[in-house]
């Protein structure tokens, strides 16, 4: 057979899935590893039968129902990652919340996070803020992440760069703002904290690099 490790791994899923199916047939509710195994096996078999990518995903979703698992397993089973062998070769499938049938997850289930203060979270409060009009002269979409030093942006974005020194977008860390080709819009910037936001000389040290240049 010349089985490579990847093929042996498939057999481990099969064995777990077969055990789980036997238990399900005897009326037992599946636990987390059992449910994952059945879902994976269903997708692998759909792929083996020549189904298309979307059909493989659907086979995974259809393979275990929320009433066939122990309470709490839906909340534990937030995602399944699996590599299947389709007609055009190996492909990865990621099923998010595969036991979702339109019902809400149990807000107090295993690992639940219960929010203490339900009010909005305010970030960048109390920092200097400015509104800047920005026009994109690019033919392409440009996206700008939260903490990018604004005066260093791609030169095809036209705005008052001097005013932007020491500033960044006023959005949550890790979020971004997009500029479509030719778009003009006003964005709110906040002063960087730390050394670069410390005062009027902020950004002066690398003023020579303005305009998206590199060091």
């Amino acid at each position: 057979m010349r089985l490579i490790p990847w093929e042996e791994e498939r057999l481990q899923l099969f064995a777990a899935a077969e055990l789980a199916r036997r238990r399900r047939a005897s009326g037992l509710l599946l636990n987390h590893p059992e449910a994952v195994a059945v879902i994976c096996d269903a997708m692998l078999e759909a792929a083996r039968a020549g189904r298309a990518y979307g059909e493989v995903e659907a086979a995974g979703r259809a393979s275990v129902g929320p009433d066939e698992v122990l309470p709490g397993v839906r909340e534990l089973l937030d995602e399944v990652r699996l590599e299947v062998l389709l007609g055009d070769g190996t492909r990865v499938v990621a099923l998010v919340d595969p036991l979702d049938r339109g019902q809400d997850r149990d807000p107090f289930g295993p690992g639940a996070l219960v929010i203490g203060d339900p009010s909005d979270v305010v970030v960048n409060d109390g920092r200097d803020a400015i509104d800047l009009e920005v026009t994109s002269t690019s033919r392409r979409r440009i996206r700008v992440s939260s903490h990018f030093p604004f005066h260093r942006l791609n030169a095809r974005l036209v705005f008052d760069r001097d005013a932007a020194r020491g500033f960044r977008l006023d959005i949550p860390a890790g979020a971004y703002v997009g500029f479509e080709p030719g778009e003009t819009k006003t964005v709110r910037l906040v002063r960087l904290a730390g050394r670069q936001g410390a005062g009027p000389t902020a950004g002066q040290a690398d003023a020579e690099n303005a305009g998206g240049g590199t060091r």
Binding site: I115, G116, P118, V122, V123, N124, A129, D170, I171, P172
Partner: peptide, 18 residues
């Protein structure tokens, strides 16, 4: 300043005080 809903904040960064 910028606002996030309580839920979005936890989705991005996890649990916080309280």
């Amino acid at each position: 300043m910028s606002r996030l809903s309580a839920e979005e904040y936890r989705t991005r960064y996890g649990a916080t005080t309280g």
